[in-house]
Design a protein around this nucleic acid. Sequence first.
RNA 1: GGGUGAUUAGCUCAGUUGGUUUAGAGCAUUUGCCUUACAAGCAAAAGGUCAUUAGUUCAAAUCUAAUAUCACCCA
Length: 849
Amino acid sequence: MNIKNLKKIKNYNFKKLNKKIYKKWILNKYFNSNYNKNKKSFYLLLPPPNITGDLHIGHILNFTIIDILARIKRMKGYNVCWIPGTDHASIATEIKVIKELKKNGININDLTKKEFNKILLNWSKKYNNIIIDQLKSIGCSCDWNRLQFTMDKNTYKSVINVFIYLYKKGMIYKKNRIVNWDIYAKTTISDEEIIYKNKVNYLYYIKYFTEDKKDFLVIATTRPETIFGDTAVCINPTDKRYKKIINSKKKLIVPIINRIIPIITDKSVDKNIGTGCLKITPAHSNEDFNIYKKHKINIINIFNNNGTLNNNCLNYSGLDRFIVRKKIYIKLKKLGFLVKKKKILSKIGFSERTNTIIEKKLSLQWFLKMKKFIKPALKEIKSKKIVFYPKKKYDNLFYKWIKNIKDWNISRQLNWGHKIPVYYYNNKFVVAKNLNSAIKIIKKKNNNINIYSIKKEKDVLDTWFSSWILPISVFNGINNPNNIDFNYYYPIDVLVTGNDILFFWVLRMIMFSTFLIKKKPFKRVYFTGIIRDKIKNKISKSLGNYKNLYYLLNKYGADGLRVGILWNNHEYDFIFNDKLCIRGRNFINKIWNSFKLVININNFNIINKNKIQYKLIIKWFNNILYYNIYKLNILLNNYKIYKSFILVYDLFKKKFCSIYLEFIKNKNNKINKFVKKKTFKFFYILLKILHPYAPFITEYIWNILKNKEDITISSWPIISSKKFNKKVIKKFNNTFSFIKYLNTIKFNKKKKNIIFIYKSTENKFRKNIYFSLVYKLSLIDKIKFKTKFSIKQKYLFFFYKKYKFYLLKKNIFVKNVNVKIYKKINFYKKFLLKIKKKFFIYINIYYCY
RNA sequence: GGGUGAUUAGCUCAGUUGGUUUAGAGCAUUUGCCUUACAAGCAAAAGGUCAUUAGUUCAAAUCUAAUAUCACCCA
């Protein structure tokens, strides 16, 4: 592009240019990474976004941080391999698609399984493409040759192999247990997918009469509709209130259904909850199920999969659980069994995905034994070889989780996901890679079997079953553990993720990797806070409380968006709004305009004279630039991304633009050769350190200035502490703050202004302040040193730090003399009071003696 | 109930192992400026019992304790 034309362009046109720039990066294969034994590897993994929809601002924060790390490491000469991918998100996607179909008037019950699967597949393709396009538009420097999808052939194969491996080790089993049942999705869900909410509820007190109807117990329950599943009433054996009735060994009659049930005793019953009598419905509560196992009582399931009551519930079968609750309440009241109804506040579990109340239900499911994962994972965490940023105490959290870990329910009653590799025949089953190998195994056991009677397991695996193997499976390290790439790159150098999936994903990856290959899955974990909306809700796909990414990109540009989102400390949760992006865009604009000025300087007339002020300002910026880059590298080594950005922003805008450029530009269009050369040098270095944060605009400017070289593959500046002098920086800082102070004094601009200072402090003053800069940047024309002052008539004195200086009265508007001085006086008055107070106490004590 | 973190300007937040400067930015507000990089800008002003109370110290936004409020995680 012609440089003269550039001057006319007011703003950087990101809409036109960003795509071109990204294409160029891809064409030059800058982001592709291959095995290279001479280079240090740097492995990054994109936490795969769910294909439930497009990306939101929470993803952008996460991915921008990864990109910054990737770009810096690449410039530092590492072989950076950033693997992108998407997650099939079995339950989340399936629910989303069902809802979407419903909107269009399609009921999934009308579709065959094949049709439904086809729709799911098309959905996944569509959103895969959108997500990839969005990742590219924000400038993510991923290796697209290694793109992953958790339902890809390779990952599928890995998942199946892991399942078979664990099954052979005896760690996977099928059993009837109490699980969390989502009545809308009609599947089990994990404990972690339940959200507990405080809700107003009622406690119903119900009379259970003894068989001879002479006596009764009062039972308190929040769920009267479950009386159909009652098979016992349980009391704490130490509860004195019920000693008589327990000893009488009478049995009870369940109201309405008139079932006869025993009274049993168990220490696990809390005497203080309700009346101390607990009705036992073993099929619908974990605690009740445990009691059932101990005491050999009956078990009765009363719910259908959709939350209605089943055939065990008289004429209530087929009705919804909450309708039955109301009906039972009325009936109990009518028959005189109800003692009272009490309002209480209780926590009720909702499904994260469908927002329906979770039902506990006895169900035949696949489980993974977790005990064997504990030891190796604990060992890794205790050794503290995995470093967490920001540095916080996660150890206790991990220990707590690991200690309380239960067997993992890995089966889900869904269509979308990895099918469990199990084949049934004659009420038995085998575990096998595919149907053919299943047949072989079965035939060995029973030659007479009819092949067509063999049926595959319908259930799929929990989404997280493919996620926890991901760091290994992306290199095909499960199917082929000896491959070069896997051994070269593994483990991940930094995992960047939100702290909300610490348990779901981070801990499970540690458990899997340390168990299977006895290696940690990552060296470091960088946690970001969670982005919230105006009312502090978590921004998420399921809430839909975010603006479309393309809207933000069109309005503020990728660079503006990246910079904007970095402007808040993301170590904690923070609230996002558009103002951040405006700030980001304005900063990008500043970069653009500084570029225009630098080009302008290129056309200035060269002069040989070099004034002392220019020498000084270059000395200053030289020092300040190298000092800040030195600090920047320290911050980056400690993974302080937010602070690093603030430093770069401050250095560029406050120091370079506001001070340096303002200083050297002039109306005469003249510049010294040395100044010109230095200015360009500074600008190049600044572009380099800006590049990871704002990759597009810096690349574009670099291309123009450096004649088509690319900044992406330039080298990162590394500065030794010898390149700057802290004392010099301090002297400059003093000078600037002195100038700032002087500028708060209202001078009479028409007269010559002279500062007078005591001769005795001259040396100190000269040591700490550059006079020539003071002359240039303030209204002071001269600094003079004197031995005597006639204060009252002529002069007014001021304090700057330890220095006392004088100005001629006639040169100042006396009324406007610093208000802040009075503030300081107030401060010292208070300070004095404090001391007096202390003295007073002291004197009092003295008098006591 | 247990755990973790937070409380600084009207709003959103920085503030390094206690002292480097009068506790800093950005937005919003007020004032002055279309100046040859930038009005998406420049120059400046106003705005703070650093949640409260006590303690340690020559010195506390920073360390300790208690209290209050809020957020998140777990049961």
